[in-house]
């Protein structure tokens, strides 16, 4: 199963806090706080893991199947795209 493709743009900054990740876009003067599984995904993404490794590890951390993991990852990225912190790359 495949999901959509996304692009995470440059020019953003992020920080790992105790219970969350915050991503800042200084150009738009906005920030987004990501908690729980969204923070997990962000940290995994920023390690530039290969797709299959990303899904395997995310699924293990979330204790879900890889299919469900892919769905969750898609959902989180869609949310990030809606907030302007990612871009859907396939229209």
């Amino acid at each position: 199963m495949n999901g959509r493709n996304y692009r995470i743009p440059s020019g953003l900054f992020w920080v790992n806090n105790r219970d969350s990740v915050t991503v800042v876009d200084p150009a738009r003067a906005v920030c987004e706080k990501l908690a729980d599984e969204k923070a997990v995904l962000w940290r995994l993404l920023q390690q530039e893991l290969p797709r299959d490794e990303l899904i395997r590890l995310y699924a293990a951390i979330r204790s879900v199947s890889e299919t469900d993991a892919l769905l969750e990852i898609n959902q989180t990225l869609a949310g990030l795209a809606a907030a302007g912190f990612a871009e859907a790359a396939d229209g």
Partner: peptide, 13 residues
């Protein structure tokens, strides 16, 4: 100083 620059990337799912 705690902030890291985001690594720009394509995520191909």
């Amino acid at each position: 100083n705690r902030f890291l620059p985001v690594k720009a990337m394509s995520v191909c799912l």
